[in-house]
Design a protein around this nucleic acid. Sequence first.
DNA 1: AGCTAGCCACTTGTGTACAACTGGAGCTGT
DNA 2: ACAGCTCCAGTTGTACACAAGTGGCTAGCT
Lengths: 212, 212
Amino acid sequence: MSGATLRFQRLHAELRARICLLDYPPATRLSEAALAEEFGTSRTPLRRVLARLEDEGLLESRHGVGTLVTDVEIGEMAQVYALRLELAQLAGTLDPLPVTPHVLNEMQSFVRRGQALLATPEARAFAQLNMDYHGFGLSLTGNPALREISERLYYRTARIWLKSIPHMDLADECAIFLSEMRETRTALRAGDTQAAALIRRAHISMSVRRMS
Amino acid sequence: MSGATLRFQRLHAELRARICLLDYPPATRLSEAALAEEFGTSRTPLRRVLARLEDEGLLESRHGVGTLVTDVEIGEMAQVYALRLELAQLAGTLDPLPVTPHVLNEMQSFVRRGQALLATPEARAFAQLNMDYHGFGLSLTGNPALREISERLYYRTARIWLKSIPHMDLADECAIFLSEMRETRTALRAGDTQAAALIRRAHISMSVRRMS
DNA sequence: AGCTAGCCACTTGTGTACAACTGGAGCTGT
DNA sequence: ACAGCTCCAGTTGTACACAAGTGGCTAGCT
């Protein structure tokens, strides 16, 4: 992998995280020049990153105006969630990967992080853990296309939870999340990736209902 | 929609069609400078188009070497097809749109094009019709995310049929395609979008078997 | 003859100046 | 006072020159 590609992926992941963790709330106007200077490059490579984020629906560039962070509403995202539900389930049936000891170790560490979060609930830490956990979930399917698509749609909806948390009970959310991870751990210990996928689907579905 | 955006979409669609119709066969080396001159722009806007095609898996740019058209093999694409099957079916269940007279008219014109194709079979015309018909199929679902994802995966696998046709019977393929469109017309006349989606899934599945 | 090292034509990646464009501030006329 | 016009600071979009990198060709040595 070339240095340019690595830098691209680094910047892309970094800016995506800032958007999805609401460091850049919706309607924030980003400056290409400022970002370029922050990351020590010129506008040219940075614009490629911004163009991709625009393709992914996280940004919108307007000539003469600026680069704006898109807004997300639970209503508009209902259809994306409907699709995500199906994709989550497909991860268990299409090309499930065998559950290795390494996977179980990772799962265990996620449970521990969930316990720590429940001890001291914090919205941003929750969102970060959820993001990492989603990436872990993708590693359970051997279908690259499904991984790519699921990731794309996940990041499109990722901000909604953080936007909704003021109207929800953070402690409850943490407890539910930990509970999901424990159930999933049980399923994975039994080597049942399909069950894990169904658990995931169920919890996404219930999460959407709580946010609505 | 701004002029720059329109040009971007035009160039993107044009180059994507050239790749998927094998005007640019796999491993073809494209020249940014030559393409820029052909389309009357500088390399800068063109590179944005190429970057997106690279994101979509149709191109691969290597520093110092060139921009290469990616290769596709039925084996590697099996997993993409597996996902496409599910998505095709979901188009009928997730957010099916009501079948309007306009839809039926379009369907009828596709059947006519299919008849014309059967009269004088031609591989490239088949591929073009298939491409247009796929776009029509997407218009039957009201879920934008599903449309976007399905389109993305369709164009990733679109070249395989054209690559496989030398080992297949073109006349048979045309007859089967026309048959599919007639079945779909029947389903749509009954207002049964879900049935149309299942027909689509079945024919994608059978098409993969014939190509393998 | 064969092999190796260096050169060179050509490609994509980057930096930078400039063009195109927007929205608002401020001026002006009524 | 206010409506409308003009100008301008600031932004993204484009063009172009140059840097970085690759692969093959060629010359020269063994």
